[in-house]
Design a protein around this nucleic acid. Sequence first.
DNA 1: ATACATGTTGGAGC
DNA 2: GGCTCCAACATGTA
Length: 243
Amino acid sequence: MPEGPSIVILKEELALFKGKKVIEATGYAKADLTRLKGKKITAIKSWGKHLLICFKTCTVRIHLLLFGTYRINERKASNPTLRLSFDKDELNFYTCAVKIIDEPPDEVYDWEVDLLSDQWNPDKVLKLLKKVPDMLLCDALLNQDIFAGAGNIIKNEVLFRTHLHPLSKVGKLPLKKKKELIQEARQYSFDFLEWKKAYVLKKHWLAHTRKTCPRCHIPFIKAYLGMTQRRSFFCNNCQILYE
DNA sequence: ATACATGTTGGAGC
DNA sequence: GGCTCCAACATGTA
């Protein structure tokens, strides 16, 4: 479900909830949900993989983690982590992390690193990358402070598209390659968004979960790499290792 | 039935 | 106090 583009889709689906007043907030989330009662939604935003339901005095931050789901005006069989009830509508979130933030989102979030934000800034990302020369690319692409919204699929696809080996070190890339990586992370995020909306995301995967390289037709390597030991699919032949 | 996955965190243990 | 590790998350699918 939830890499950044999926959260953008969710945000768009919730747009019509702006201005609606919460009649009741329930669920097993540990946050103090009672304080949401009677509050009116002022905006629905997203930052990376965070969905933000904004009120005048606080913001509900929802992270769907690995297997979070949601329903709009429907219920699943299990109890929701968070249910927001409105006059006529209902929002249900399951298996997710919910936190209420008191600070205004602009104070907490750097929109310039959100891959899907209008304010995304490649120069800022380049500066951040220059600070972590020893970081492996497979870790850098999953780092939400640098590439907010990128997840494991985006990681694998971007590295394949840019012909970069996941174990390459950030600081060893030529500048041109670094810029290419940054641009491709942005571009693939939008491709992901469009394909996901059209329910054709999977068939466009070139590397993620694939067994052979579509370029040179030799078997892909599947390995659990980097600090997070997440699945990497890559071609030893056409993805260059900078070390 | 079992393993595994589009992710993050909080707390235990050192 | 800080670092690392790992369980937990009312799951869904192969």
